[in-house]
Design a protein around this nucleic acid. Structure first.
Lengths: 214, 214
DNA sequence: ATGTGAGCGTACCGGTCGGTACACATCAAG
DNA sequence: CTTGATGTGTACCGACCGGTACGCTCACAT
């Protein structure tokens, strides 16, 4: 790897690094991995430094505090998921079409950002005060996307209802996939998304015939 | 409270305590609450002792280790959920009937044992070695209940399919309710369960008419 | 050549961590 | 009255916690 070579030889490669990671970015990345792996409280700041290749003192040059690190990490993730969801809402047409694409994008985000997702799901409540409020607000905005698309479906006459409980039920099914969704599994993420969208749209029960022949 | 009176007066009340909690039971209960509130790593053993009304030394007379405590707590919860699920499977008739009751029982368990549920969801991966294996096996047994009832539905000709992805989707919707399910909310737990069961059985989409009038 | 400041490491702070050793208390059984 | 089991508190351990102080290096501008 080029960084290792740099470190070994001491030759400064000063410019034109295309996708080099800044220290700040690297800290956010490894913090997501460590927090996901061992939990927020279970990860020490020294451990974060080790994973980022710097010492505790240097780490605190970049991050205000451990909780601040958790917050910036979580906020960045939710904001990006929100942006992707809004892009879908802006481009797709029809409630069913928007819904299917929203589900796809949701699962893609979960699959691509596994560490961040685990951190947000498990460690969000470790945030305190204003930081907790801000993150909750962001997540509510995301929930609103699904509420909107279900409501559009009802107005189109395509969907039965769009009460909050249906919104929460749908988001619950999608969110919990973070536990078992495997981007390297035999079934692609997009196909899983489509199957789950079908499940939500049609349900498991076949249209019931009256007086079933038995 | 009678315990307080005992402690104050020093009069031993030796027998006939109907629902008195043993120290061991009390430790399990408060550990669930503390672990749910502050996380496994975020909760110190001294804190557990305080909550249980004993000191660290006495705590370790009862619990082997902190991880052992987490394990016994989690196992007890999953085993009880499993027992309740199996009772439903034994008593209810028909795939739809079994399914609806299974969903009800699932949400009732989630609502009654909020602390334990949060602990299992968030801290299960803090278990190591044999303990982690045992708990995973128990959770798989529970998943099997839903796989079975969906399969029965397919054999009855009532359900579309019962692939693992549908099982996981259903369980995902139900499990994630632990985040927002409120036993003291305006909608009862049983009603929420019925609404979610409807959502899974029928889906959100209305049976589509051909060439919709628009 | 000198100054500047970003970036980093070392050393250290007070406090808490999980866990153990051991003496003391209680009480039922002998 | 003695003994052994059960339960508890006190004191202590080494390790680690999150965070800070401070000095060093080095690229760069003046």
């Amino acid at each position: 790897m080029s960084e290792d070579a740099d470190a070994m030889s001491g030759i400064p490669v000063s410019k034109n690094r295309q996708h080099e990671e800044t220290t700040g970015e690297r800290i956010l990345r490894v913090a997501a991995e460590k927090f996901a792996e061992k939990g927020y409280h279970g990860t020490g700041v020294a451990e974060l430094g080790d994973a980022a290749g710097i010492k505790r003192g240097a780490l605190y040059y970049h991050i205000g505090s451990k909780e601040d690190l958790l917050f910036r990490l979580s906020r960045r993730h939710v904001e990006e998921a929100l942006a992707r969801g809004r892009a879908v809402m802006a481009n797709a047409v029809g409630a069913v079409g928007k819904f299917r694409l929203l589900v796809r994008e949701h699962l893609r985000t979960l699959a691509e950002r596994r560490s961040e997702v685990i951190v947000v799901m498990h460690e969000m409540h470790a945030l305190t005060g204003e930081r907790a409020v801000q993150l909750k607000a962001l997540r509510s905005e995301y929930e609103e996307l699904f509420a909107t698309v279900l409501q559009e479906g009802v107005e189109e006459g395509a969907f039965r209802s769009a009460d909050r409980i249906e919104v929460l039920g749908v988001l619950s099914m999608l969110n919990y996939t973070y536990v078992w969704l495997d981007p390297n599994g035999p079934v692609s993420v997009d196909e899983i998304a489509d199957r789950l969208a079908d499940l939500i749209l049609h349900g498991v029960q076949l249209p019931q015939r009256d007086t079933p022949a038995a």
